[in-house]
Design a protein around this nucleic acid. Structure first.
Lengths: 172, 172
DNA sequence: AGGTGGTAATGGTCAGACCAATTACCCCTT
DNA sequence: AAGGGGTAATTGGTCTGACCATTACCACCT
């Protein structure tokens, strides 16, 4: 008997259920706030609290005067949200570079053919991007991309020098 | 010049900033909705929309009549939220295990002394936890912990068999 | 000092209003 | 009939105020 839960979470679940039952697909418009309030028998402020959360998570997009629309899964931003809260803690900046090195090293080690990196040895960004892309793991890639974005936001330059990149290739 | 952003997201950022500036730590009570509305010069409904989102993400916890409290980072529930939305689609669950393996492999490779792992070879969880802890990188450890929590939420068992763990040690 | 009750503070929810932006529609012109 | 323009309706954005439910606080009584 734990169906109590917060009414707020129930509202989110109800909206998601309604979206599913109505057979809405990404790009479709969901009912207006006033219509949702009526169908769910709750007030518009309550509907808005749920919709704002869904919008923050990237599930939907709201356009002033236009309505709310279901977004594609690729547009979902919860990964960014997680990273945002992960990084804004007391983690030190040098952790960023260290984490990037660890991620890229593990990706590099699992590569079977390193020759495709030779053409990118001149560019730090392309070199590292190529390494990550060979993993063929979407979650891993998104994590790396987020950490890298934070690293870049600090205005840092290259993570490796050209000599380091060449040494990596020579060693393999 | 893209500081426009949604007022809603600015409110969330403002609340997070206020929490930081006030030096609040997990467990502390944050100002009441009415006080927040006054300090941020916005209405209570707007404050609530932001607070409900933070509560849904597990950043804060609200108690009816009691107030809102800052939660521990470990209590954050965005992992469950992601799972909730991700699991309904063509979720690539295997990405989880793959990402964990990559993270732990990179951590393992940069260890200089593998002997401390011998006493934990009997426990998959302790074995992997020990590997990660040797990195001494807070951000890396938090990322791994989140991904691992996500993996555990699927009710999965051991990531490696005992034989695999022993083979790892023997090879080093 | 300990328990107890009342009161204040706080979150939960709602109704209604008004503004801003967009969309839909109808009418007019050509 | 087709196109364009302008107005009305729709929809999200925000606020005010109110009331209830729950909790926290504190003075009071025993």
């Amino acid at each position: 008997m734990e169906k109590k839960r917060n009414a707020f979470e129930m509202n989110i679940a109800a909206i998601k259920l309604m979206i599913e039952q109505d057979g809405l697909v990404p790009g479709d418009r969901i009912p207006s706030e006033r219509e949702l309030a009526e169908r769910l028998a709750i007030s518009r402020p309550s509907v808005r609290e749920a919709l704002r959360t869904l919008a923050y998570l990237g599930i939907i997009e709201t356009r002033h005067g236009g309505g709310s629309f279901l977004l594609n899964r690729d547009d979902h931003t919860y990964i960014q949200i997680i990273a945002q809260f992960l990084v804004t803690g007391d983690s030190k900046f040098e952790d960023l570079a260290g984490t990037l090195r660890l991620l890229e090293q593990s990706a590099f080690n699992q590569m079977t053919d390193h020759t495709i990196l030779e053409e990118h040895v001149g560019s730090d960004a392309a070199f590292r991007e190529t390494i990550i892309s060979t993993v063929k793991n979407d979650l891993f890639e998104r994590i790396w991309r987020q950490v890298n974005a934070f690293y870049q936001s600090f205005g840092q330059g290259e993570l490796y020098t050209r000599a380091e990149r060449e040494a990596l290739l020579k060693r393999s």
